[in-house]
């Protein structure tokens, strides 16, 4: 019982990541693919931060009267990852805008067909 209690959060986060991964692979719309990628990414970030949580601990800002703090290291790494993540997905959106201008479509299967017609 305590094993399930201690690991349930990790399992739910993995479910979340897999929903993101499935969205990324199954949707042919490119904007939705990026949304799926973002869901996958936030799942991984949450997983990482949840590893740093200490039961009974508090926010890692040193203050009088507190002994136990959560681990600051995963938070630092993930904080920067979020900002870098939005910058890179902006790059993805920019590519989508250009693809739409050149091909007049953002559905992956249609793009595939057009490329095949060219060959």
């Amino acid at each position: 019982m305590s094993f399930i209690e201690g690991h349930l959060i990790y399992w739910l986060l993995i479910c979340l990541m897999m929903v993101g991964l499935y969205t990324l692979m199954s949707c042919s719309n490119l904007i939705k693919k990026i949304a799926g990628l973002n869901v996958f990414q936030t799942g991984a970030i949450l997983f990482y931060v949840s590893l740093g949580k200490v039961t009974g601990g508090t926010v890692p800002i040193i203050a009088e009267g507190y002994e136990s703090y959560s681990n600051p290291l995963p938070q630092v790494l993930m904080l920067t990852a979020i900002v870098v993540g939005v910058a890179t997905s902006a790059l993805g959106f920019a590519l989508i805008v250009r693809i739409r201008e050149a091909y007049k479509s953002i559905e992956e299967d249609e793009l595939d067909n057009m490329d095949r017609l060219d060959d």
Binding site: Y10, K53, T55, N71, P72, L73, P74
Partner: peptide
């Protein structure tokens, strides 16, 4: 386990930072 204070991640580097 989730929130275990004895986990290796909390006993190596974090101690020094805190």
């Amino acid at each position: 386990k989730f929130g275990d204070p004895e986990a290796p991640i909390h006993t190596q580097m974090a101690d020094r930072f805190i």
